[in-house]
Design a protein around this nucleic acid. Structure first.
Length: 886
RNA sequence: GGGCGAUUAGCUCAGUUGGUUAGAGCGUUUGCUUUACACGCAAAAUGUCGGGGGUUCGAGUCCCUCAUCGCCCACCA
């Protein structure tokens, strides 16, 4: 695969990405299979809708999963990322209906059930699963051999088995209850599929005349069109204003019906007029009231939310909103409209249809969740399953502890048909995995199951359950789940319940809830706002690695992300930086033989800079391990970014130019350490930026054609940073001096490249010796002509007045022969003196505080004392400099 | 109504169990074609850590309270 040519000046991701992914996939690198020699690590993908296309939300979600997968793979575990798609009943049915209407001018109902389903499968084959192909562009290392669809035969068998089991346990039942109805899908919905929006509405105050013509009651409603279903008016039995009316009747306007006035606590005397119209068929509270008083349930609506015959001739067939207007108008004409108030109120909308839902009474299938919830609550309470961030467990507990029956039947065709059969002759109901074999006319239930009724089995159905497969034995339970907090009820909670019930084992150990991605203005990304960038465009412009890295880098734990395409510059420039570091290395000659491990003699002879670099690497490796273990992906990204850019490129490579120039054994050692560090960096970075790291590992000659970085060991701590803390501190001191010298040059507007002479007065003999030994390095880093290091005071009489900087290892002077701005120097030193004096005073006060000495930990006290000494020493030198300027 | 989160540099955000002088990227300013990189190098400036109170030797960090913004759940005849 590798073509060892000089690297171009800038990284061009497109060709590299297009090259490696197919190679990885063809080579079977993504495939995981049970292997008793290795520790299993598995993730199941949150199955995207088969109709879906890649969004930035998916990018974040799947990048994080891929980071985990690649990280654990390199850690030597047997990893498997199970991918697949969800049949998404309502969404897909709507999508295909639209397609058929546009392409063939036909409809679901024209085609009939069997033909329509055939067409949906056809559509899926042709257009479905686009997102799965897009995930490849992103670099996701899913085990595509194991790709599943929630309506595959095996997964469908799992659904049937689960349905029958829960039915036999008495959890699943069919009943007439108040449900949420979507007029667009013409189907029942679960409570979770209803989203509440605050919208402007009106409160209509209607007069309902008493039958005896002795006056009227005023009732308020936001839904005038449901009045045709009113079967009572309720007042509070304690309400002095109305209690004498209980038992009388009112004439229901616009109808010829009379309805009773009933006493019920549901009527709150403090709210509105104290009188409530009761519409049992269209309001959950009213339904309860109706049950208590044995009221008739009059459904006045058709499935498409037009009014039906029960609303009377004038209203039959009218859309609910038209009917509302008409009812109000007619009430007004009859003098029965008392007043109208503007209000804002929450209205339930269908998640998919984006229209107000109707609550109505209907026969549906339900699943009682109470018993299923118990072990699932326990699993999270006990810590067997951990949520990250932990606070989501509160949301989880609150919902689980108040869990309601789940309405699982849908009046659509695309989905798992409920395995129940009716015998109309005998009235029998048969529920079984297969059709009944007993004689008689059996008619299968028309309804299908809620999409989530298959998704909740995903972690084990995808592994072949109910068959007892090797995969289940090895990979179940999965390790980590990465998903959005918006589906905590829909999916996460239900998977935990299903796992506990059917596998007797939790489905995963950790759940990481990703951030929600917003635009720069903090708005949710949406198609209608046009603020939702297409990830494929972003990848084309910046590269997949850049997008992956950027989104990881900017995603804080548990908070919303403000995303804009421009932010991908972070990842793009970072990739380019890494590319050029390798390009530089390539120019220095052949790859060292020691890039995998440094031999003893090199380790024994590493320079201070080299030890410093190896120590930085160790520290970064530890931080990254910890960060990934705690799902702090952005910390890991920041850590590796700083390591590469600051430690490796800005300091280490620049410092190593000295031994590399020296040639011979010096150069050989420097290149060995450089290669060793570089290959560790590439591996550290691979989970975040898979393409560029694979490409560079080959370009640099670290890997042969038949090898892949994917299975190279993830770097581990070499303990270099524990080797010699004092030596590492001295290198930091050298860098501080370099920074100070550069500052002096910049302060006097000297071009960075100008060769100048510095003087350094070392603080002591030890520092003197060290700085002398690092002289070549400092000359190079400072771009200086000469550096004179001594223990003696700088003598302005000899070299002229010089601005200076006080550092830990010594004071740096830049002689400027007449150019020195004495006033500016004085001001700088006075400022420094003031700061030092302030800190010293503060530190002394702290050390003078007996309580501090008594209560603070020893190391804090010792550190404080050391700081004080250092500051006092610095102050003394600052004062000397000030004196010298007088 | 119940719950959760946020408020730190001009912007977007870091800041692990409380412990020196609060950081990064972008932007801004200055100087640079220095043996990879202008997708770059070097340097600089900007903060009463939302307000108030408390605990503590010590608070951006813990507690209380207020304000503003956002999310979730419930309810709303």
């Amino acid at each position: 695969m590798s073509t060892r040519e000089p690297l171009p000046r800038a990284y061009e991701p497109a060709a590299v990405e297009a090259k490696w992914y197919p190679h990885w996939e063809k080579s079977g690198y993504f495939h995981g299979k049970p292997n008793p020699q290795k520790k299993p690590y598995s993730i199941v993908i949150p199955p995207p809708n088969v109709t879906g296309i890649l969004t930035l939300g998916h990018v974040l979600n799947n990048t994080l999963q891929d980071i985990l997968i690649r990280y654990h793979r390199m850690k030597g575990e047997e990893v498997c990322w199970f991918p697949g798609t969800d049949h998404a009943g309502i969404a897909t049915e709507a999508r295909v209906e639209k397609y058929l209407r546009q392409k063939e001018n036909t409809s679901r109902d024209q085609l009939g059930r069997e033909e329509f389903i055939r067409r949906v499968w056809q559509w899926k084959g042709e257009f479905g699963g686009k997102i799965i192909r897009q995930l490849r562009t992103l670099g996701c290392s899913c085990d595509w051999e194991r790709e599943r669809f929630t309506m595959d035969e095996g997964l469908s068998a799992a659904v049937r088995k689960v349905f029958v089991e829960l039915y036999n346990k008495g959890y699943i039942y069919r009943g007439q209850r108040m449900i949420n109805w979507c007029p667009v899908a013409k189907s029942a919905l679960s409570d979770e599929e209803v989203i509440y929006k605050d919208v402007a509405g009106k409160f209509y105050y209607f007069r309902y005349p008493l039958s005896d013509n002795s006056g009227y009651l005023v009732v308020a409603t936001t839904r005038p069109e449901t009045m045709f279903g009113d079967t009572a008016v309720a007042v509070n039995p304690e309400d002095e204003r109305y209690k004498h009316l209980i038992g009388k009747t009112v004439k229901l306007p616009l109808t010829d019906r009379e309805i009773p006035i009933i006493g019920d606590v549901h009527a709150d005397p403090t709210k509105g007029t104290g009188c409530v119209k009761i519409t049992p068929a269209h309001d959950p509270n009213d339904f309860e009231v109706g049950k208590r008083h044995n009221l008739e349930v009059i459904n006045v609506m058709n499935p498409d939310a037009t009014l039906n015959a029960r609303a009377g001739k004038e209203f039959e067939g009218l859309d609910r909103f038209a009917a509302r207007d008409k009812a109000v108008r007619m009430m007004e004409e009859q003098g029965l409209l008392e007043k109208v108030e503007d209000i804002r109120h929450a209205v339930g909308y269908s998640e998919r249809g984006d229209v107000p839902i109707e609550t109505l009474v209907s026969y549906q299938w339900f699943c009682n969740m109470k018993e299923l919830a118990k072990p699932a609550i326990e699993a999270v309470q006990s810590g067997k399953i951990k949520f990250h961030p932990e606070r989501w467990s509160k949301t989880y507990f609150h919902w689980m502890e108040n869990i309601q029956d789940w309405c699982i039947s849908r009046q659509i065709w695309w989905g798992h048909r409920i395995p129940a059969w009716y015998n109309d002759a005998t009235g029998e109901v048969y529920v079984g995995e297969e059709a009944p074999t007993s004689p008689g006319e059996w008619r299968q239930e028309e309804d299908v199951l809620d999409t989530w009724f298959s998704s909740w089995l995903w972690p084990f159905s995808i592994m072949g359950w109910p068959e007892k497969t090797e995969e289940l034995k090895y990979f179940y339970p999965t390790c980590d789940l990465v998903t959005g907090p918006d589906i905590i009820f829909f999916w996460v909670a239900r998977m935990i319940m299903a796992g506990c019930e059917f596998m007797k084992e939790i489905p995963f150990r950790n759940v990481y809830f990703t951030s929600i991605i917003r635009d720069e203005l903090g708005r949710k990304l949406s198609k209608s706002l046009g603020n939702s960038p297409d990830p494929l465009d972003v990848i084309a412009e910046y590269g997949a690695d850049a997008l992956r890295f950027t989104i990881t880098y900017i995603a804080p734990v548990g908070m919303d992300i403000r995303y804009s395409n421009e932010k991908c510059e972070i990842g793009k420039t970072f990739a380019n930086k890494l590319w050029n570091a390798c390009r530089f290395r390539q120019m220095q000659g052949d790859t060292s033989a020691h890039f995998r491990a440094l031999p003893e003699d090199i380790v024994a002879n590493v320079s201070g800079d080299e030890r410093w670099m190896l120590a930085k690497l160790d520290a970064a490796i530890d931080s990254i391990d910890t960060a990934i273990a705690e799902f702090r992906f952005h910390s890991a990204a920041h850590e590796v970014y700083d390591l590469v850019w600051s430690s490796f490129c800005d300091w280490f490579i620049e410092a190593e130019k000295v031994p590399m120039r020296a040639g011979g054994a010096e150069k050989e050692r420097a290149l060995a350490v450089l290669d060793y560090a570089l290959y560790r960096i590439l591996r550290l970075l691979h989970p975040f930026m898979p393409f560029i790291t694979e490409e560079l590992a080959h370009q640099m000659g670290f890997l042969g054609d038949e090898e892949t970085i994917m299975f190279e060991p993830y770097p581990e701590d070499d303990a270099f940073r524990n080797a010699d803390a004092a030596a590492l501190a001295r290198i930091d001191g050298k860098f501080e001096l370099v920074r100070a010298g550069r500052f002096l040059k910049a302060s006097y507007n000297l071009p960075d490249g100008k060769k100048v002479k510095f003087f350094v007065k070392a603080v002591d003999a030890e520092s003197l010796a060290f700085l002398e030994s690092e002289k070549a390095s400092m000359l190079s880093l400072l771009n200086a002509e000469e550096i004179e290091i001594s223990l003696a005071d700088y003598d302005p009489a000899v070299n002229g007045a010089a601005p200076s900087q006080v550092c830990a290892l010594g004071t740096v002077y830049l002689p400027l022969a007449g150019l020195i701005d004495i006033a500016a120097e004085k001001a700088k030193l006075e400022k420094q003196k003031k700061e030092l004096t302030g800190w010293i005073a503060g530190t002394k006060a702290r050390l003078g505080n007996e309580k501090f000495l008594a209560k603070a930990p020893e190391n804090v006290v010792a550190d404080t004392k050391a700081q004080l000494a250092a500051m006092e020493e610095k102050l003394a030198r600052t004062n000397e400099l000030l004196d010298s300027l007088k």
